[in-house]
Amino acid sequence: MVNLAKVVAFSLLTIGFFAFFANFGIPEIKPAPPPVDEELDLSSMTMEGFVALGDRIFNGKGTCTLCHNPVGGRAPLLDDAAARIRERLRDPRYGGQAQTLEAYLRESMLEPSVFVVAGFGKAGTSDTESPMPVVSGGGIGMSEADISAVIAYLQDRWGLDITVEIPADVAEAQVAETSMAATPVRPLKSPQAAFTQFACTACHIFEEAGGQVGPNLSRIGAQRDREYLRRAILDPNADISDGFVPNLMPGTYAEQMYASELEMIVDYLAGLE
């Protein structure tokens, strides 16, 4: 009995040591909680947002790129499929119901086997059956709205007019407003976006439009060099053109602008001749 007690005590001590070490001997790292599936709020969705949503679904939840990628060769590439789809709708082999590109895309997602691109069928079915899962199925679980978003995304990517509608009545009323409220992706990619963001046209004229508080910049590239323009944005009071008062233009652009934005604007202005 004494031996048993000793052995039990020894075992408990050993277990205790392991547990102690695991709890206190190493840093406690809390694993990230499971990701939450995104809630769709269609009521405040612009078409741009809808396309972006399609992008997210296409590359994420939809798992499309697992197969539609240049690496695996498991499914046709979708990079520039618009022309091919139009051809296909006229192809006598095509037996589906779709008349339009939109309908074709929808059909191919919901009934992948209606038309199988030559060479991409399941092994042994001589291209009568597609290995593609039905996207509304359990593993992917795309809703009607998700499918429409992906179609919008693809149409946008192919440079086509977007024919799908955002599937919610409330959405349209708020399109204009929300598109303004949406925060743009920084750094901005176009000078026009930068002018909107930094409200340049409130005071300056570009291309025949804008306010007259500051100098007209329509042909500024012919008059000033880049160094001057850069300085004028970063430190507006460094040089004041004749006829204008100092301290009107905000001096905070140096903090607000990304370097790439600044250079983009300078490039653009220098090109206005």
Binding site: I15, G16, F18, A19, A22, N23, E28, I29, P31, P33
Partner: peptide, 14 residues
């Protein structure tokens, strides 16, 4: 569904 921390797992294992 969360992944338990090592300490928690060690306690269960103990």
């Amino acid at each position: 569904a969360f992944t338990p921390t090592l300490g928690y797992a060690a306690n269960v294992v103990s």
